[in-house]
Design a protein around this nucleic acid. Structure first.
Lengths: 218, 218
DNA sequence: ACACATTCATGAGTGCACTCATATATTTCA
DNA sequence: TGAAATATATGAGTGCACTCATGAATGTGT
C-alpha cells in the first residue's frame, strides 16, 4: 500500500506518517473543542461531542490530552507563547520604553483571543473563582501563569535595572496579573468599534502604572 | 401520635421538630465529610460514603449542600467566622497595635484548622491552583475570601486612619492573602512542638510587615 | 381530631469524564 | 517482503457527582 522508500540513513530521520497525523489530530481536537466551547460553553460541551466533531473516537481524545481542561489549557499556552514571542521578536521594541512593550504584550494576547471571545468570557468567570475549574488547570496552569509573569518581570527588570531586593518587587507581577484580568474584563464588555476603548484604556493605564512604578522605586 | 400541645400564640414561635433535625443532619453531614476528607482525601471521598457515614441516603446530602465542594466550603466559612469573631470579641485587643490583632486572627484560624491538618494540606494544594476545585468554590468562596479580606482591611484602616486613596492600598489585602497562604504552608510543614516555629514566624513577620506598611505609608 | 399543605428523605436513574482490553495501523529489522 | 515490535484508535465499560419522581413525615387551619 505504501509506496514509500524511507532512506533511513543514520539516526534521526523520519517525519513518518505517524508524527504527521499525530500533529494533525491534535490540531483537529483543539479546533473542534474551541468551536464547541465558543458556541456551547465549556461545561456543556461533552468530550463525546468534541470527538465526534473531530472525527475520532471518544477515547482518542484522551490519548492526546489528559483531561478536558487540558485542551483549553493548551490553547492558552499557545496564546501566551504567541504573545511573548511577538514582543521578543519585535526588534523595533528592543529599546522602547516599558509601557510600549507591555502594550504590545497585552495587545497580542487580545488579538489572539479575539475569535474566541465568548469562550474567554466563560473561561474568565471560572478562572476568577479565584481558581476554579477552568482556572483549576491544576499544575500546568500554574506553570503557564508563572512563565507569563516571569516574562513580565524580565521586561520590568530590563527597563529599570537594579532594585531587585525591593520589598515590594515581588508584588509587582501579582499586581500585573490582577491588572491583566481587569483588562480582559474590560475588553469582554467593550462594545466600541475594534475594541478601541480597551486599547485606549490600555495605553493610558500602562503609562500611569509604569510611571508610578518607576517613581516609587528609584 | 404526637402528645404535643403547641401554644402557638402570636407570630414567630416554633423551634419545631423540623428545624432541630435539620441542623442536626447538617452537622452530621459536615462531620462525616470532614472525617473522610481527613483520612481519605477530598477527591477519593465519595458522596455515597459521606451519606453512609452520616446515616442518610445519598440524595439527602444534596438537599443540604448543592455540591460536594460546598460541604468543605461550609467548613471554611465557619473557620473564618470563628476567627473574625475571636478578634472582634476580644476586648483586650480593642486598642492593641495592628500586629497583635492580625496575630490573633491568624492564630485563631490555625487553632480551628488544627484537627484537620491533613485535609487542609490537600485543600491548599487545590486552592493554590490558583483557584482550582476546592479553591474552585465558585462563588461563595469568593464571597468568603472577600469577607475575610474586608475584615483585614478594616483592621488596617482602624490602626492607621486615612490614606484611603493611596494607589497601593488595594494591594495590601491581596498581599495579606498571599502572606496568609504562605503561613498556612509553613504551618503544614512545621514539625516543631505545638507549631512553635509557625507562631514565632507569625510574630516576627507581622511586626516587620506592619512596620513596613506604616512607614511606607505615612 | 381531621384534612390539606409543605417540607424533606429516599434511592434508582442520568449523564458525564475518564479507563482499559482489544483491534488496527505503522515502523523496524532480517 | 514478511513478521515481530511498537504505537495508536477504538468504544463498551466504570465510577462518580448530581437529579428527580415518589412517598412519608411534619406543620397548619378548622
Amino acid at each position: 500500500m505504501a509506496t514509500k522508500t524511507p532512506a533511513k540513513t543514520s539516526k534521526a530521520r523520519k517525519p513518518g506518517k505517524r508524527a504527521q497525523s499525530k500533529q494533525a489530530i491534535r490540531d483537529r481536537i483543539v479546533k473542534a473543542a474551541l468551536t464547541l466551547f465558543q458556541t456551547k460553553g465549556f461545561d456543556t460541551t461533552t468530550t463525546k461531542a468534541i470527538a465526534r466533531k473531530a472525527g475520532i473516537a471518544e477515547g482518542t481524545v484522551f490519548n492526546y490530552f489528559r483531561t478536558k481542561e487540558d485542551i483549553a489549557l493548551f490553547f492558552f499556552e499557545e496564546e501566551v507563547d504567541h504573545a511573548i514571542a511577538a514582543v521578543r521578536d519585535d526588534l523595533r521594541l528592543r529599546k522602547a520604553p516599558l509601557e510600549e512593550k507591555l502594550f504590545k504584550l497585552v495587545h497580542s494576547q487580545l488579538e489572539f483571543l479575539a475569535p474566541y471571545e465568548r469562550f474567554i468570557g466563560a473561561a474568565l468567570l471560572h478562572a476568577l473563582n479565584p481558581a476554579s475549574h477552568l482556572g483549576a488547570f491544576s499544575h500546568r496552569a500554574q506553570q503557564l501563569r508563572h512563565r507569563y509573569l516571569a516574562f513580565v518581570a524580565e521586561l520590568i527588570e530590563d527597563s529599570s535595572p537594579r532594585r531587585k531586593n525591593d520589598a515590594l518587587s515581588w508584588l509587582v507581577p501579582e499586581a500585573f496579573w490582577i491588572y491583566y484580568l481587569g483588562v480582559l474584563l474590560f475588553w469582554l464588555y467593550d462594545t466600541s468599534k475594534d475594541k478601541q476603548h480597551t486599547l485606549a484604556f490600555l495605553d493610558r493605564s500602562l503609562n500611569v502604572g509604569v510611571s508610578f512604578l518607576q517613581t516609587g522605586r528609584r
